[in-house]
């Protein structure tokens, strides 16, 4: 996928000129903003305390939690592009809980919780991040990453179902 390609377009396989492409064209502004947010969440100019590689790795985890193969491949490619540093690659392993690294442990625990069961999140979950030394601004960056990727995957799932309509 090249830098300028729309992720949802590619993942859903929206054919130019198809009926679905026509419908989506009516909401082109939203699709453009979605792609821009994707880039802002995954590859921000100022990544703060979450590197591009870590963001790709955590997004890959979220794709796995959502059981979405095409998004897994997409984020895996982004992780490779970010140089696949060992620490980040580890974070993408769904069976890895961060081990003895308190920061990785807290990040992974929170991503898994908010991706899968946000209803169960409480004040204590934010305190655990703070106790692991994660700054409030990075807690917000992490939350936006999980929240946005959860949104983008659902848009793609919905569009794939629309594609099945006659």
């Amino acid at each position: 996928m090249s830098a300028n390609e729309d992720v949802i377009n590619v993942i859903v396989g929206i054919e130019p000129g198809s009926a679905l492409a026509d419908v989506i064209a009516g909401r082109a502004d939203i699709m453009t903003l979605t792609q821009q947010t994707h880039d802002g969440a995954l590859m921000p100019e100022n990544p703060g305390g979450l590197s591009h590689a870590e963001r790709a790795a955590l997004a890959l985890r979220i794709a796995k939690i959502n059981d979405h193969k095409a998004f897994e491949e997409h984020f895996e490619a982004m992780l490779e592009k970010a140089g696949s540093p060992d620490g980040a690659v580890h974070m993408a392993d769904i069976w890895f809980d961060g081990g003895s690294d308190p920061r990785a442990n807290a990040l992974i625990r929170h991503v898994d919780l908010v991706a899968h069961a946000p209803k169960d999140a409480t004040r204590r979950d934010i305190e655990l991040l703070q106790e692991a030394g994660i700054a409030d601004a990075d807690i917000v960056r992490l939350s936006e990453l999980v929240a946005f990727v959860s949104y983008q995957i659902r848009v793609a799932v919905g569009l794939a179902l629309m594609k099945g309509l006659a």
């Binding site: 908010v114 946000p118 979950d125 807690i139 917000v140 939350s143 936006e144 999980v146 929240a147």
Partner: peptide
Amino acid sequence: TSLFGWANRLMHTL
């Protein structure tokens, strides 16, 4: 619907 999968994950967790 998807937008609120996003908004809920901010509002309810933060």
